[in-house]
Amino acid sequence: MLIFGYSFAGYSQEGLQCPKRIAVLSDSTLAEISKEILLEVYKDLGCTTAINKFPGRRGIASFNNGSVDGEMYRIKGVEPRYSRNFVRSELPLFTLTGSIWLHPDKGMHESLPTGYVLGLIWNEKYMAGRRGKVFKSLDEVFKAYEEGELGGFLCSDLAVQHRISNNEFAKPPYLGERIMAAPLYHYLGSEFTPFMELFSSYLRSHTPFAHLGPSQTIEMTN
Rank of each mutant, 00 (worst) to 15 (best):
L2M: 11
I3K: 15
I3D: 12
F4V: 13
G5A: 13
F8M: 15
F8V: 13
G10I: 09
S12F: 04
Q17H: 14
C18K: 05
C18M: 01
C18R: 09
C18W: 05
P19C: 04
K20G: 04
I22D: 05
I22M: 04
V24C: 01
V24Y: 02
L25I: 14
L25F: 04
S26H: 11
S26F: 08
D27T: 05
T29D: 10
T29M: 08
S34E: 13
K35D: 15
K35S: 13
G46W: 09
C47G: 08
T48Y: 12
A50F: 12
N52M: 13
R57L: 09
S62Y: 14
V68R: 00
Y73S: 03
E79S: 11
Y82F: 15
Y82I: 03
S83A: 09
S83V: 13
R88I: 15
R88N: 05
R88M: 15
S89D: 03
S89G: 08
S89H: 04
L93D: 06
F94L: 10
L102N: 00
L102F: 04
D105Q: 06
M108G: 00
E110Y: 05
L112K: 13
P113Y: 07
P113R: 08
V117N: 07
L118T: 10
G119D: 05
I121N: 02
W122P: 00
N123G: 10
K125C: 04
K125L: 05
M127S: 00
R130F: 08
G132L: 04
V134A: 09
F135S: 08
V141Y: 08
F142T: 07
E146S: 14
E146Q: 15
G148T: 09
G148W: 06
L150R: 03
G152M: 04
C155F: 05
L158F: 10
V160A: 00
H162E: 13
N166T: 07
F169M: 05
A170R: 15
P173Y: 00
P173V: 00
G176V: 10
E177T: 01
R178Y: 02
R178D: 00
I179G: 11
A182S: 11
P183Y: 04
Y185K: 01
Y185A: 01
H186A: 03
L188E: 05
S190P: 07
M196G: 04
S200A: 01
S205V: 13
S205T: 14
H206M: 09
P208N: 12
F209I: 10
H211I: 03
P214Q: 10
S215E: 03
S215Y: 10
Q216P: 02
T221H: 06
N222S: 06
